[in-house]
Amino acid sequence: MVIGERGVADLLDTPVVLGAGPVGRSVAAALVARGTRPRVVTRSGTTIDGTEPWRADVADPDATRAALGRATAVFQCAQPPYHRWPRNFPAIQRSVVRACEANGAVLVAIENLYGYGPVSVPMTEDLPMRPTTRKGAVRAALWAELLDAHQSGRVRAAAVRASDFFGAGVRDSAYGERFFGPLVSGGKAQVLGSPRARHAITYVPDLAAAAVRVAEDPAAWGRAWHAPTAPGITQLALVEAAARAAGVPPAFVAVKPWQLRLVGAFNSGARETVEMLYEFDHDFVVDSSAFETRFGQPPTPLDRALAETVAWYRQAGA
């Protein structure tokens, strides 16, 4: 199919979501709320209310092409485990790009901020890619390839980037179960790095809504956008705000680098986090004003987002 064959009005008529982690599920929920029935592609054929499950390995170009069918928009939310990023992530993205190239679907890739590397200013989308970590280098390379595919006319693509995210269903995150899990029970939230460093966090429903908005706006393609993200506050202030939402005393324990390295000896997730500690030792602030100004979508107020997250953790724990 020739790119541009479909009109703008039907861009979200037949959406496909790749991956069913917290981000994929949230994107699928946002699409269902708009009255569509997205196809959700996973290796296990995960079933989500209101969606069409499809079993495929997105690293396989033929399987991905079949999974996309006549998709009008594709949301790339799938990723390999941290320790497999250098080996597996490029193949996944190339497979997805080739499939979108074949059928003309708009491709929105969900990314993070690793590619920028350490910076001392609020991050904007025009910052150069200067990664200092292995996973940051992968992210920067993936974006360079995606941008080249768009600029060469192979695909219509954009990226939506988020900081460390939180929300219902988010467990494997710096602000996931190690943070909210103990806190909602009156225990101590675990924080990395300096408790007094500011750190912006992105609410997953805001990220999902941003991805959908970008997909349906042709003028938004060909670039990266920062999802609406609340102004960065210190991790100490974040603990206090989350504790208020949970109705418990604020308490935390700061995980030391040597402790993370020790756990990393037998836990790949902890081992892969070590190189990202710069995000938590110093201020890590996101500027999402470009997206907010264009689309009129501010981040969900932090107190409300935290309350909704706490409620989910309480229910999950029960």
Rank of each mutant, 00 (worst) to 15 (best):
G169Y: 09
F180S: 00
E216F: 11
L192C: 02
D126Y: 02
I110Q: 10
P86L: 08
D281F: 14
G69Y: 01
M123C: 03
L260Q: 01
M1N: 08
L302Y: 04
S194A: 04
R196A: 02
A311D: 08
A311W: 10
V40T: 04
R198S: 07
N88P: 03
K188Q: 10
A219W: 15
A245M: 03
A254Q: 15
A102T: 13
K135E: 02
S26Q: 05
V204W: 03
P22A: 14
A67I: 14
V41E: 00
R156M: 12
I110V: 11
H282Q: 05
N103L: 06
T46P: 10
G4M: 14
F165E: 03
G186E: 12
R34S: 08
V41D: 09
G247C: 06
A189I: 03
W54Q: 04
D13H: 05
E272F: 00
F179P: 02
V214G: 04
R178L: 12
A109Q: 10
Q297I: 10
T46Y: 10
I233M: 09
S26E: 09
A237N: 15
G45L: 13
R304Y: 07
V248A: 08
R304C: 02
T132A: 14
P38T: 07
A59I: 10
D164C: 08
A290H: 06
